[in-house]
């Protein structure tokens, strides 16, 4: 509030606040238009085109013509493209809560440890974030393939025969890779939030006779809420983007198809089938669904919060 007032004071102080502000904004805004707005606009434009054959039997040279919404109807009629949305949805419903629960529990437990141990463990949990998704997938791929994998080896010795790459298992094997990569990162966001809580609050709770479990659930968890919202939004966005992990796992198993996730479907449409117009339509659909979901999640959380007050 006070900063707003002061800023208005600043306005009187500067001769041309608009010009200065836009001067600082311009480089970012220009590039933003070039790499966010323009490509999306261009993709929308391309998605409305298609090659139109001419001549007898449609064998003549193709010209590019207006297609209306043909590409969209085509995309929405493809059962494997629709199926890919169902798949990432199922994936997200399971993977995001499991990961955030794990991250929250680890953050709460680390918060009770001594500085030194907490530091060492935090670093260990956070390490996978520094491993690129494709490298993590290559790594876990080796750990899933029978013959190389020590895990399959060990489980085999106690009489289990896990099929990490089977038709039903592979989705969860990919979920495991994503959980491995991002739990530590999400944990760190939550830890940061917990650190910003005034220590007096904990003191007060202890004096009131609250157990550390009660402190964790009644005080820390509600106060960590903003961090949970943030990690929730980014996890939902991440789920829809799922691409590198299935692409790397794909050569290892026939269970991952070329339209396994929406991104993979659009990628294959563009580069394997050379149908950039359909690929453009699929990208636009994906961008729309992603925005609707993350905006929806945010406004749902906001409404709940307002309701609670």
């Amino acid at each position: 509030m006070s900063s707003n007032d002061l800023a208005r004071g600043g306005r009187r102080g500067t001769a041309r606040p608009d010009r200065a502000a836009w001067g600082f904004l311009l480089p970012f805004v220009a590039l933003f238009l070039f790499v966010f707005v323009l490509p999306l606009g261009y993709a929308v434009y391309e998605s409305l085109l298609k090659p139109i054959r001419s001549g007898p039997l449609g064998l003549g040279p193709a010209t590019i013509g207006f297609a209306g919404l043909d590409n969209y109807t085509l995309a929405l009629q493809q059962s494997d493209f629709l199926g890919s949305f169902g798949r990432v949805l199922l994936f997200g419903i399971v993977q995001v809560p499991v990961m955030l629960l794990l991250a929250t529990v680890l953050a709460l437990v680390l918060d009770t440890l001594s500085q030194r141990w907490a530091g060492i463990l935090r670093a260990a949990y956070f390490l996978p974030y520094g491993v690129p998704g494709v490298i993590a997938s290559i790594l876990w791929g080796f750990l899933y393939v029978p013959g190389v994998s020590p895990l399959v080896d060990l489980l085999g010795r106690i009489g289990l025969a896990p099929d990490f790459l089977g038709y039903h298992g592979v989705l969860w094997s990919i979920a495991n890779i994503v959980i491995w990569e991002f739990t530590g990162y999400n944990m760190l966001v939550i830890v940061a939030q917990l650190k910003s809580i005034p220590q007096e609050l904990y003191e007060a709770a202890r004096i009131d006779g609250a157990s550390s479990w009660q402190t964790a659930v009644r005080i820390k968890l509600p106060l960590a809420r903003p961090a949970l919202v943030l990690t929730g939004v980014f996890s939902i966005i991440g789920t829809l983007q799922l691409f590198a992990e299935p692409l790397v796992i794909k050569p290892l198993t026939s269970s991952v198809t070329s339209a396994y996730t929406p991104n993979l479907a659009a990628y294959n449409e563009a580069f394997a089938n050379n149908n950039i117009y359909l690929a453009a339509a699929e990208s636009v659909i994906l961008a729309l669904v992603a925005s609707v979901l993350s905006f929806g999640f945010l406004s749902l959380v906001n409404r709940k919060e307002r309701g609670a007050r």
Partner: peptide, 21 residues
């Protein structure tokens, strides 16, 4: 608001449109 929309838009949803452009 536009910046916020940019935060929420998946970057890989942009990769193909960027490639086309």
């Amino acid at each position: 608001k536009v910046v916020l929309a940019g935060v929420l838009l998946p970057s890989t949803a942009l990769a193909l449109p960027l490639y086309l452009l």
